[in-house]
Design a protein around this nucleic acid. Structure first.
Lengths: 210, 210, 210, 210
DNA sequence: CATGAATGAGGGTTCATTCAT
DNA sequence: TATGAATGAACCCTCATTCAT
């Protein structure tokens, strides 16, 4: 687990910092969706956030900080939404499938946000980038563990890892390849198919296929 | 098939255009790898290309043209390299597997280029973007056809499409998630695993698994 | 009467806008006099104005805006200076002559400014150009009215219009043909002569000619 | 009379020089009409002239040379067209009136060219500018002489000079204030009126007015 | 003589960041 | 804390001019 990376602020009041940053993040996501990180100016972000450019810079140091806050926040959100299913007590296979399904639904709802993450993370400086990458790795390893709990007898650890990555990317794929997939499939259809291949990969036969 | 989109040049000599643009593309890929499209200046591209900024603008109209040229060239290269395996006469299943393997190898060799494509295409204006997206769709549909030739009896057309997309993305994934995958697997291992899941998804049993 | 055309500014403080724009206008007139609009760079204008190029662009959108501001300001100044004589209560003929004389004096004092107007208005885009042209038309029509008040019995409306235009241009001519006129005549001589022809044209006989 | 100012050419063949320069001048006038001198590029001039940019520079040294050639050519044309009426043997008053009328007609036909002259001469360097100004002075003095031949008894030399300048400018005014004048008057009406005021200024009573 | 590819200084404009109020 | 005017480095792009062919 990575240490919480700190973005420095001139302001002391932590509640205010939290509030203002939430405004910034919401505003930035909105703008990044439309125009991407580089095409969005700090002035626009300040305006959309509802305060002045001067105030903006009281809560961050550089424009890149904003990108980092956005990326961090997106991951945090995905993570927290996933927690619901992760903490449920269920038979392993069932739980895995529920988590995967939920994950796909989240990816659907947060398509735009994930797209931002996907395309802009590279603009982060190394330290921040590694922090975000670490978060992804954490999520994948969570998935890995979940799969292992289903005790797939004939599937090696290496296989599990690749399969976890596949699932992870297939979730994002629904959003970032929407022009290829969403025109022919509903989300439910897409999930059903990917879940089916997942089971085949894991050699799980639950009788849903004859 | 999309029409060949033309980038306008002031220079008339077509051979020269080709030569200079190749210089530009090579230079740009080099730079985009390091710093991304937005952080790279046209002056840097000119310098790296070996000519002056004025000359650069004799062969393109805007900076975006360069990005388009780069994207187009990357796809063209992938396409032409894939053609070798596509034109071979082989039994369907064998051919599919060979194409997929070759595709993964190409994705390995062209990791950086594909990464550029993935992260910067969004910066293209609509017309150019659609042209590039169309090229991707063409490649996927090529894969789709190939899969259908293997006559997977119990796999629907919809399944084939999703599976083709999966394979396509898994190839790119080797490059753009290298920090997650390449630390634990060699390319050959990765290919072997993905091919295995592909077969399972397609319900192909060739006896390579007991 | 044309609506006041607005030049957009990033800055909100209207007093500051006024002040800074006055600086810009003064600086620009100085430079345009010497080198013309096209040969003057925005950087030079900023420097002469006493602020940075960045600040310059806080108060305008494009270089053309500056030209517009200059043209507008010159007309405004001519107009306001003329108002003094226009608002005086006098016998019509006397008033006309006083206005014309004042107009010639203003044209003398503002030679350079009027020259700019004269040579650069064409560089304005249509909307701005029309606005400025309208201002000229307004001034001429003011002169026309004034002439009509003198009740020139045997002079048609058409004649009045042409004569008003003649006077208008003769005023500017003192400046833009200085190399032809100012070497042989003083301003007073020039005015005396033009006023004399004006009276002849209008068939006014006030006994000043025997 | 000013000495013929020379524009230097690399090419020796004088006939060719003449031919090529005529092409350039025609092309330039066309382009300057539309976009003005500064907005027109040398490339555009070369293209419109029907030869390459390289060839263009075989016949001139700088872009300003082209402007000079254009200005010179316009004056030459006005001059030669006026010669017809100047060389006719006629009674002085009649001749003056015929020349003035012809001058107004020429100004009408060459509106655009004269406009160029008016707005761009300032862009010439001093030497060239003075040469062109001298040509104007020559034309005005020609008019002055013509007026003096009519023996206007009660009109001083100073008056004659100003009146000549007035007529000269009124001719140009038809073109450069077309938006003020041409909407309300035909050329013939305009000429009739200006001729009428000219006579009044010169105290010529030919009985055409009661 | 004619061509047109090459050059690079310089132009207009933007925008992240600072700092006095 | 909040504001927003000020800054200037840096960007993309143009175009007059040159010169090898």
């Amino acid at each position: 687990m990575a240490e919480k990376k700190k973005v420095i602020s001139t302001v002391k009041d932590t509640d205010l910092i939290k509030k203002r940053r939430e405004q910034m993040i919401r505003a930035s996501i909105e703008l990044f969706k439309q125009k991407g990180f580089h095409q969005t100016t700090t002035r626009e972000i300040a305006k959309q956030s509802g305060f002045s450019i001067g105030t903006l810079y009281e809560y961050i140091r550089t424009k890149e900080d904003i990108l980092f806050l956005v990326c961090d926040s997106v991951y945090e959100l995905v993570h927290s939404r996933l927690a619901v299913a992760l903490n449920r007590e269920e038979p392993p296979v069932e739980k895995l499938m529920n988590v995967v399904e939920l994950y796909f639904h989240i990816m659907d709802e947060m398509q735009e946000e994930v797209l931002i993450l996907y395309q802009e993370v590279k603009s982060l400086k190394n330290e921040s980038k590694n922090y975000i990458i670490q978060k992804e790795l954490d999520m994948v390893s969570m998935l890995t563990k979940l799969i292992k709990c289903t005790n797939p007898q004939k599937v090696s650890d290496g296989d599990v890892e690749i399969i976890a990555n596949n699932v992870f990317v297939q979730g994002q794929m629904w959003g970032f390849r929407r022009w290829a997939i969403q025109r022919n499939f509903t989300l439910e259809q897409y999930i059903a198919k990917q879940v089916k291949y997942l089971k085949r990969a894991l050699l799980i036969n639950d009788g849903s296929e004859s």
